[in-house]
Nucleic acid binder design. Structure first.
Lengths: 176, 176
DNA sequence: ACTAACATGTAATCTGTTACATGATTGA
DNA sequence: TCAATCATGTAACAGATTACATGTTAGT
């Protein structure tokens, strides 16, 4: 996922590691901070894999900056990952959000709509957190205060997300 | 997190690995599946750490079952982790949900309310996914369809979760 | 004098994914 | 006979966290 985030931000413009960190922090840092120990090795890996180009510039009164930009392979990789996300990237909200943040870079409305549709299909499946006798526990039947809270929040999120997905898919789909 | 989930389910009753897997799947499997390669090593680690006891029972027409139960140290560990969660367990919704699923095992309403309050404090901070000129981008100003969706869903979730947290904290706090 | 922001990295450790590996019972 | 369910594990690899490590400039 960190790799996707790096590809996404660099798709827009070249950035050095520190700037990249600031962008990532803005996107998801309040929820889960980015660590240098994850970021810099990821940059090295991706450079070794031919996804990134680097060139050095003097820093603003600090260490020299390594300015990173996407190679053609890097741009291709981003589009592939957006077009064809792994199942867990569709089901896990945190990961799906990362996808959404950069989905505009997939400049094909039909493919964009297909990704949203995969998420919608997942959300439309009946699902719950808890099961009793094999059947999902409904909000009203859950005796535990905290689990009732989980279900209540999940229900509100689901309702809003499904509504948005339907609208967005309609907006992306050319009228027949 | 897997460790917390294991502690939480075993707090209620002894289970063997396979049953544990079913419970975990019920809780979070639709979002992110549990793999044997994570579960069984976690069980071994926790047993070695003195958190779990094991005893063997014949299986139902399959391999013999390893029935797991919490030791006193295991029960203590669960209560500590619930009472004093790490920052990321408060900020990351997925992890916070895991906490919520077992928070009832912390049988001290004041401590339970304190955990909910930490989450509420986090949600009350102004936060956003995207920044322009250092200021958070508001839903209305976001030009990108997909990012607008993220913000819209996040707003709905936040509203509902804050409302629930306030109610729950009030319910847990004895009238003064 | 100290702290924050700038700027980059490595090493130990932990945790998780994916694939491999085995084997019995039950029902279609 | 074949698939699903039951039941447990290991090994290779990938990825992340935490702590360590260094050094400058600007502001209080």
């Amino acid at each position: 996922m960190l790799e996707l985030t790096i590809l996404g931000f660099l798709y827009e413009q070249p950035l050095h590691g520190y700037e990249l960190k600031e962008r990532i922090t803005g996107l998801s840092g309040h929820v889960r901070p980015v660590s240098d120990g994850a970021l810099y090795p990821a940059i090295s890996r991706m450079t070794a894999a031919g996804l990134l180009d680097q060139h050095t510039e003097p820093g603003a009164g600090a260490a020299p900056r390594r300015v990173l930009s996407l190679t053609d392979a890097g741009r291709d990789r981003l589009r592939e990952r957006l077009r064809d996300p792994k199942p867990v990237e569709v089901t896990d909200s945190t990961r799906f959000n990362t996808l959404l943040a950069f989905l505009r870079h997939l400049d094909d409305p039909t493919a964009q709509a297909a990704v949203l549709q995969r998420r919608l299909d997942f959300l439309l499946q009946p699902a719950s957190f808890f099961y009793a006798d094999g059947r999902p526990v409904r909000l009203e039947d859950e005796p535990d205060l905290f689990r009732r809270g989980m279900l209540r929040v999940a229900r509100a999120t689901g309702t809003e997300e499904k509504a948005w997905l339907k609208e967005a898919i309609a907006a992306l789909t050319p009228a027949t």
